[in-house]
């Protein structure tokens, strides 16, 4: 028991250390190529943390989306705009003050939270055990997350899919590439 806890704790502490280091590096680095890569690293590390916290589906998505697609999109944006951040003349005092105050308020609110990993926490007492108990009979698929996502809460997922569709329509409207390409082709001809 003792070794199990300490091993998990060591992995968590290592991941946390890397996460904080990456975050600080993102603050300090001005070369946007490095920033994009570091944000990919941050996503990959958080995916590792999600695996340690039993959220395999989430880890899977974060690794594919955060470390893959969003890095590519950031590099694409950089290629179209600038690669270096300019130094700002504003003083960092006010942002630091805002962050410290907000952070202190958040930390104060965590003091009331149940300790990490307790099975008696309020979050585990209401609907969650019900879903776990009923999924084998109601749905019959082994992955409870898929069962909730696609069947119990199918209505929500329809909404999410529509949001993604809408975002893509907005991006295509903004960048207008689909029609522009045809124009270029006719110009060449």
């Amino acid at each position: 028991m003792m070794t199990g806890i300490s091993l998990a704790a060591i992995v968590n502490v290592l991941l946390f250390t890397f996460l904080v280091m990456t975050a600080i590096a993102i603050v300090r680095v001005r070369h946007l190529f490095a920033v994009a890569m570091l944000s990919g690293v941050f996503s990959l590390l958080s995916a590792g943390l999600f695996v340690a916290l039993d959220a395999v589906d989430v880890a899977f998505t974060e690794a594919a989306v955060g470390a893959g697609i969003s890095t590519v999109l950031m590099l694409g944006t950089m290629a179209l705009t600038v690669t270096r951040e300019k130094t700002t003349k504003r003083s960092p005092v006010l942002p630091v003050f805002v962050c410290v105050v907000t952070g202190a308020a958040l930390v104060y609110s965590t003091l009331d939270m149940p300790a990490f990993g307790t099975a008696q926490a309020p979050i585990h007492e209401h609907v969650a055990p019900d879903y776990i108990a009923r999924t084998p009979d109601d749905i019959g698929v082994p992955n409870i997350v898929t069962g909730i996502l696609a069947s119990y809460r199918g209505y929500d997922t329809l909404g999410e899919t529509t949001v993604i569709f809408t975002a893509a329509v907005a991006v295509i409207l903004l960048l207008g590439s689909f029609s522009r390409k045809k124009q270029k082709r006719t110009d060449k001809e």
């Binding site: 395999v56 589906d57 880890a59 899977f60 998505t61 594919a64 698929v141 082994p142 992955n143 997350v145 898929t146 069962g147 996502l149 696609a150």
Partner: peptide, 9 residues
């Protein structure tokens, strides 16, 4: 529906 994964991933 059997292991981790699904439409999003």
């Amino acid at each position: 529906d059997f292991g981790p994964g699904g439409g999003f991933q």
